[in-house]
Structures are given as C-alpha cells and as structure tokens.
C-alpha cells in the first residue's frame, strides 16, 4: 500500500488556477497530514480537487488506484470530504442527517445503515446529540454531526476542511483523537486543513504548508515548522520554542510590514 500520491495537480477557476501544478509525495496509510496555510492559499480548493469536486487536472492516486479512473459511485465510497461550512440549523434530527448521508447514494438495508449510524455517533462520542434537532444544536455541535456524516461511510481517505474551527479546546482534541482512532482501525488516510499551528504540531504525523497555491514545505512536523516557513506563508515574525516536554510550539511576535 503506497498511500496517497498527488502529482501535478492544478485546480480552481478556468482563468485563475488556485492550485498550480502541486505534487505531494506519498502520505502513508494510517497517517494524519495537517494542511497549513493562510486564508485563500488554496487549502479548500486542494481538498475539493482531491475529492473530485470542481475542475482539476493532474493525478491523485490512493494505494496505487488512480482516483480519476474510478466511476463516481466507487470514488464517493472511498473518499469522505467534510466541507468547511457547517451543516445548517434545519429541523432535521441529527440521527436523520447522518442516516441520509449514509443512504443518499448507496442502497443499504435498514439494519446495516442503523448500525453504521450508531457507530458513527459512538466513535465521535456524541450519542447525546443524536436525537436532537439540528436547529437546537450549537455551531460546534453541528460541526460534530457534519463529521459524523463523513465518518459514517468509513472512507479510505478523509478530507476534513477545518473540522475544528467551531470547537472548544476539549472538542478539538476529541475530534482529532476520534479521527486518529479511525485511522488506526482502518488504515485510512486523513488530511486536515487547520489554522491552529500548535494543535497541528501536536496531533499530525506530517504537515504540508501551502502558500498561493503551491507547496511550500512538506514533512514531519519538526522539520517543516521554522520561522522562515511561517514568515513566508503567513507574513508574520514567529519563534519556534520548546515546552518542558520538548514539544515545539510557535509564538507569534508581530505581523511583518
């Protein structure tokens, strides 16, 4: 199993490509890749292109399987993409939202679908939300239900666009731990677009930093995060310090002029 390999991927609008000729060497099975980069750097476009949404050119292969050659249905089964926007506050019961995600494009018998839905709520530790209406849930809780919609299909590749953006500290860790649990169990690969560099450093196996649509750095967290890379990507002066446990963390001093 070679994991995920991306080569010469371009994506975005016809006249203005957001991602240009981006390549990513193997992301091994079972690993978590953090995707860092400033706003509008192309993180979402990259995730959408890998998921097969929107126009793109180039190659994306998962365990030697070129995703573009797969038919729509097979591709959907392999990839779970969590969009950046939260699920709306509709009168749907959370259980129904996840059940619909489970059954919308696949013909499943009721019992199998029920088991999958139950497992998704249990894995994410949000049983208590399952029978609530979405319009009674907070933004962060809806984000968890959105994640359950992805997890319920047990995809081989999880593409999560800022899954922790609406969550407090405890739930940020719970989400990452839940994703980690799924990766351990299924040897799936996850790419997480994330803004919190320190959370990324602590939880991801590898980091990719993109800026203006191209890859700035890729590798194990310690090798990627440096004042130079942060300055180049975000335009801020930052220090990389180490805490008492020896784990690096980033302190931002000021925005560069």
């Amino acid at each position: 199993m070679t994991g995920l390999v991306i080569s010469n991927l371009s994506a975005g609008y016809k006249r203005r490509p957001v991602i240009a000729d981006l390549s990513l060497s193997s992301v091994p099975p079972g690993s978590l890749l953090g995707l860092l980069g400033p706003n509008a750097s192309g993180k979402s476009t990259l995730l959408r292109a890998i998921a097969g949404l929107g126009d793109s050119s180039g190659h994306v292969a998962l365990n030697d399987l070129e995703l573009k050659t797969l038919d729509h249905k097979k591709r959907v089964e392999m990839i779970g993409y969590l969009p950046q926007s939260l699920p709306p506050a509709s009168p749907l019961v959370a259980y129904e939202a996840v059940m619909a995600a489970c059954r919308a494009v696949r013909a499943l018998d009721t019992r199998t679908a029920e088991k999958a839905v139950e497992a998704a709520f249990v894995d994410l530790g949000i049983n208590h939300l399952a029978l609530e209406r979405m319009n009674r849930l907070s933004g962060g809780q809806r984000q968890m239900v959105g994640l359950a919609q992805v997890v319920v299909r047990k995809p081989g590749l999880l593409l999560l666009d800022e899954p922790t953006s609406a969550l407090d500290l405890k739930w940020q860790l719970r989400v990452i731990n839940a994703v980690r649990g799924i990766l351990r169990e299924t040897s799936a690969i996850a790419i997480i677009a994330i803004h919190d560099i320190n959370l990324a450093i602590r939880t991801c196996d590898q980091l990719a930093v993109i800026s203006e649509g191209s890859l700035l750095a890729l590798g194990p967290t310690e090798t990627v995060i440096s004042p130079q890379v942060i300055s180049h990507a975000y335009g801020v002066k930052a220090r990389v310090e180490h805490c008492s446990e020896g784990i690096p963390f980033v302190l931002v001093d000021y925005a560069e002029p």
Partner: peptide, 19 residues
C-alpha cells in the same frame, strides 16, 4: 427521499456525499 433529506442537511455536505 434520502437525497432530498441529505440536501436539507446542507448543500455543500450533500455535494460532498456524491449527490
């Protein structure tokens, strides 16, 4: 029915499910 229900759980979400 399931596609329409999924649509009520978010258009971007439904699209990401392959609908």
């Amino acid at each position: 029915v399931w596609k329409l229900t999924a649509l009520r759980a978010g258009e971007a979400q439904a699209e990401s499910l392959g609908i």
